[in-house]
Amino acid sequence: MRVALFLGCTVPVRATNYEQAFRRVAAEFGTEVIDINDFSCCGFPAKAVDRMIPLVMAARNLALAEREGVEAVVTLCNACTETLTETNHVLRHDPEQQEKVAGHLANLGYRYDGSMTVRHAARFLYQEIGLDRIRTKVTQPLAGWRIAAYPGCHYTKPAEIYEGFDRPERPISLNLLVEATGAETLELEGTCCGGGTLGAKEETALKMARMTLDQMKERGADAVALICPFCDVMFEQNQKKIERQVGVEYGLPVLYYPQLLGLALGIPREELGFSINRIKMDRLWQKLDAQAMRG
């Protein structure tokens, strides 16, 4: 399968571990990942200003992928996923908006027929690669790892635009993907990480993240596996700050799902971007090394 990887804003600069691990894992399954250099921001940050901006920006990006003839656009960030998917949805269901967007695109020299499939990387692994193929390739099962699988809001919501994929409020696909690596998952009440509120009121956003971190810690997580760079900002990059504010210690390693999968596939950790992860993984490395020695 030939797909275009949509990087968005945050991933190619601040979450290169996620990008590197996904590319490495996709190669393992024989997926041809191409890069389209004319891709820009998906448009999400400007929706609050004027919802026409993300519609046109997303449609331009999708038009580029259509022109390239790929089978799908694979996204790494939940906000990109939501914006590109929502744009497809609006263009297919709202003729008035569709006409306006088409006019702007024509002005830029583009045309978008609305045919492009958008898939979050996790959904891609779940649906296009499939749990069975993943399981057969696992050479280093992560037995005994207790993982808090955190899909994030826009992976499945708003449900209307995702046309029946997974359970909107408490998706299960990421848990199943984590379990395919041999790890265990925890039950979590899926509350928002707070990322969307960070710019408006940091104090509130950090409290939101803290609710979920508390839950993960209480339920005995060894690490968090997530699939969105905004969730990472809240749970990993702000973890120390929250610890200082409330006087607790989480010490909870946060990794992107493709990193976790990569380890289970036996890919060397140097090829999975772990130097970018901020929270010490020592305990997990000890587990992994002990498991490897036992063979």
Partner: peptide, 27 residues
Amino acid sequence: KKRTKMGLPRVEEKREEVARILELVGA
């Protein structure tokens, strides 16, 4: 440079068309 070190492809900024969209939409 950091991307290259990790074996990731270069990413070029393509600002012109995004700026043009902001103009077209009146933003």
